[in-house]
Computed example of a mutant assay.
Amino acid sequence: MKFHTRKWIKPEDLNANNSLFGGRLLAWIDEEAALYAIIQLENQHVVTKYISSINFMASARVNDIVEIGIEPVKFGKTSLTLKCEVRNKMTRQTIITIDEIIMVNLGEDGQPKAHGKHQIEYVKDRLEAKTK
């Protein structure tokens, strides 16, 4: 799994127990999944359709650095299914895992639209192909 984003836990990210608020972490994950899908599907109009069971395995505290890993699981006709792991950057301890996040590609009308993608594409490869 590739870990694309790091977040520094600040006091405003904590819950009443002085550990990372789960809702804040889920917002970060949702944003990361959306960015991943936008880049893969080459469309800024994607939405989160489904997030499977969330397994909180450890907590994070102020000044910890967490990293968010996203990996594609399946390309559907109009969707992209991802999985996620968040871990503590320093200790490598897993904080949370999510087996399925389904992102749906939308057309201009806001309805699901086929994206025509079948595998991971890297931006550098797209740029090289355009210059040839």
Rank of each mutant, 00 (worst) to 15 (best):
A58I: 00
P11E: 08
S19Q: 11
L127T: 09
K49A: 15
A16T: 11
G110M: 02
S52N: 07
E42L: 02
E31G: 04
G76L: 06
I98V: 14
R6Y: 00
L35I: 11
F75T: 12
I70S: 13
N15K: 14
S59T: 13
H118K: 15
V47N: 07
I98F: 09
H45T: 04
Q111E: 14
T97P: 01
I39L: 13
K10G: 06
L41F: 10
S59E: 12
K2R: 11
V123H: 11
I120H: 11
K74C: 05
K117R: 14
V86N: 04
V46R: 02
E100I: 00
G23S: 10
V62G: 05
T94S: 13
E12S: 15
A27S: 15
T5F: 13
T131E: 13
K89H: 07
K83A: 12
K132V: 12
Y50V: 00
I102F: 06
A60D: 02
A33Y: 09
A33L: 01
F3T: 02
M57C: 02
I120Q: 15
V46T: 11
F21L: 08
Q44M: 10
L20G: 03
G110L: 02
L80H: 08
V73E: 11
H45L: 08
W28S: 05
K2I: 11
E71Y: 15
D13F: 08
L26Y: 10
I54G: 03
L41T: 10
K74S: 10
D125Q: 14
H45K: 08
T48P: 00
M57S: 04
C84P: 05
T5Y: 15
H118Y: 13
G22Q: 10
K74F: 07
A37P: 00
K113V: 03
F21M: 12
F3Q: 02
K113H: 15
Y122V: 06
H115C: 03
L106H: 13
F75A: 12
N55H: 10
R24E: 08
I95P: 01
L106M: 13
I95M: 06
K83P: 00
E85Y: 02
I65R: 00
M90D: 09
V123D: 08
T5A: 14
D125T: 11
F21E: 13
I9N: 04
A37I: 02
V73M: 10
I68P: 01
N43T: 05
Q44W: 07
T5S: 14
A58Q: 10
M57V: 00
M1P: 09
V66N: 03
K7T: 06
F21S: 12
N88A: 01
I29E: 01
